[in-house]
Nucleic acid binder design. Structure first.
Lengths: 214, 214
DNA sequence: CCGGTCCTCCCCCTAAAGGGGGACCATCTC
DNA sequence: GAGATGGTCCCCCTTTAGGGGGAGGACCGG
């Protein structure tokens, strides 16, 4: 029996997956969770072989869970759409398959069976994306150029904050913030903080709808 | 029997809804469609009493379908998240209920039964949003405060352009651009051009993925 | 015709932002 | 132990942004 855990904040989706997988021989849904934190807490007890993991969830999102799960059960990532950066990142973090929610149910079942033995199933779109990346070789994504601290500052920029506000928020001198901002602009080849903010939003450091808050 | 049509591009979601509704007495799922165009084509033949309609779909989206459906079957809108503007618009276009996909399945069933007799079911979050709107009366959305020219400038800001670039792009003196930027900030209550850029992106003046281009 | 709004441009002024250095101190690596 | 990297902060300097005025012309509706 392949033990499967479903992690998704949409109850309808959970029901759908449970229904579909429940009809398959050799697959048993051992639990479902509505968010990442609960999933991490439940995994030791449930001992799933395969985790079906939604990327976008309130609180702890899929990538964060994936990071914690390193070396644990096989993970299949579910997402509503093909988010270029996240696909790469998810695969890099050890996800075996990346399915969009528009996938046929057959593909979900197939992915689960494959994941149980360490295999991958990729849709055409996802595969094309990965191949593109590999073909471009180490054309690393620009974010890799930034240090962790710089990424934090960039996220603050993406919220629309000034240097002084960032300094307060990160407990820094404003000169330090200026230093970080300058190197961010230099490394990314951007002209000013506004472009940096847009870039940060494009990279998903901050969701567009949560920028400008507070 | 309440005849229900499911319209959603995610097969897993369709399966989930079909499964859940299929277990209910007096409810019959008469069909499912993966996009809006197919739904409109299928409705005359299927004669559903209630349409469960996803908001975000490739091609024709939920709002467009809703517009065409005016006066037809009762419509319940499904969305992955609470999109303030769309909730209002959907309700304005005649949607009876607006459910987020995180809703409990009970609520979906309840909404279907209510819709069949012309009733509404609103989640707490959605209800609060609508009440807020009504309470504020005609509290127009902030964009209405801007003149057409100012909206053009705001769009340029959202692309990440400097005053000098905007001046060239719109054939203006850079002093004029400064004037416009200043009144944009004043009218919208924003601190600087970066916040204005983010606001413009949030308002959809420019798609996030086309900002920074060129 | 007159008040209003919009668009355009100008001046002065202050406060940010950004570039270019340099410096100190950790940590990690070779 | 020398070197590299990352984080923190400081200086000086120029450019940009943004606030606060003013002002002329176009256009519109009373």
């Amino acid at each position: 029996m392949i033990r499967v855990l479903i992690v998704d904040d949409h109850e309808v989706v959970r029901q759908g997956l449970r229904f579909v997988l429940g009809q398959e021989d050799g697959i048993e849904v051992v639990g479902e969770c509505a968010d990442g934190a609960h999933a991490l807490a439940a995994i030791p007890a449930l001992r799933p072989d395969v985790v079906l993991l939604d990327m976008v969830m309130p609180g702890m999102d899929g990538l964060a869970v994936l990071r914690e799960l390193a070396g644990g059960p096989a993970v299949i990532v579910l997402a509503s759409f093909l988010d270029d950066e996240r696909v790469i990142e998810a695969v890099r973090l050890g996800a075996l398959s990346y399915l969009s929610k528009t996938s046929a149910v057959d593909q979900v079942v197939e992915a689960v069976r494959a994941a149980a033995v360490g295999g991958s199933v990729l849709e055409a779109g996802t595969a094309a994306l990965l191949i593109e990346r590999v073909r471009q070789g180490r054309r690393r994504n620009p974010m890799d150029l930034l240090t962790p601290r710089e990424r934090e500052v960039l996220a603050e920029l993406a919220r629309g904050r000034s240097n002084a506000e960032i300094a307060r928020s990160l407990r820094l001198g404003r000169e330090t913030v200026k230093t970080h901002v300058s190197s961010i602009l230099a490394k990314l080849g951007l002209a000013d903080r506004t472009q940096a903010a847009i870039f940060g939003l494009q990279q998903g450091l901050i969701r567009l709808d949560e920028a400008l808050d507070t």
